[in-house]
């Protein structure tokens, strides 16, 4: 996890396309400028970045399900629950599931688990649109390879 670069996931460990589920892993860094402000003497991963982490897991699942032909853009979250503090060094598992495949959109649920405990969960909606720029598509391909679920080539 590199908070300053919005690289919230370290690896995708499992994708089940028939069940439309994904599991990813990430470890919170021990140090980050984010913790200097959030909060002095009491470093915590901001809830908005936990939501982003769940959104990225959901987004990569949608990319896999659309064979990287559509870019998922985060549209809304009607429900996000932050149940426990997430601190530097915490090992995280992120689970995402598509709960509805619409026409041009998808609704996802996700949760972050630390050592068996659900620390946050959310339901999110994404718009699925053609890639607006080839650079973005290349970046997403590159990230897919970094995360280990997209073959070289």
């Amino acid at each position: 996890m590199r908070l300053e670069y919005f690289q919230m996931l370290d690896a995708v460990v499992e994708i089940d396309r028939s069940a439309a589920t994904l599991k990813a892993a990430s470890r919170v860094p021990l140090g980050s400028p984010v913790f200097e402000g959030h909060f002095p003497g009491h470093p915590l991963v901001p809830g908005v970045l936990l939501l982003e982490t769940m959104a990225q897991a959901s987004g990569y699942l949608l990319l896999a399900l659309t064979t990287f032909q559509r870019m998922p853009f985060f549209a809304n979250s009607k429900s996000a629950n932050f149940r426990s503090f997430v601190r530097p060094g915490d090992p995280l598992e992120i689970a995402a599931k598509r709960i509805h495949a619409g026409s041009g959109y998808a609704v996802m649920s996700a949760q972050i688990i630390r050592e068996g405990e659900c620390v946050c969960d959310a339901q999110m909606m994404f718009r699925l649109v053609p890639f607006p720029a080839p650079e973005l598509q290349q970046h997403v391909f590159s990230e897919g390879r970094r995360l280990g679920f997209l073959e070289e080539g």
Binding site: A75, N76, H100, A101, G102, S103, G104, Y105, M125, R127
Partner: peptide
């Protein structure tokens, strides 16, 4: 358009369909 996506989701769920909104 964003509110319409919410409606599309609720309608899809309620009626068990997928409205071809993109088409």
């Amino acid at each position: 358009s964003l509110a319409f996506l919410d409606l599309a989701f609720e309608i899809d769920q309620r009626f068990g369909i997928q409205m071809p909104v993109e088409d």
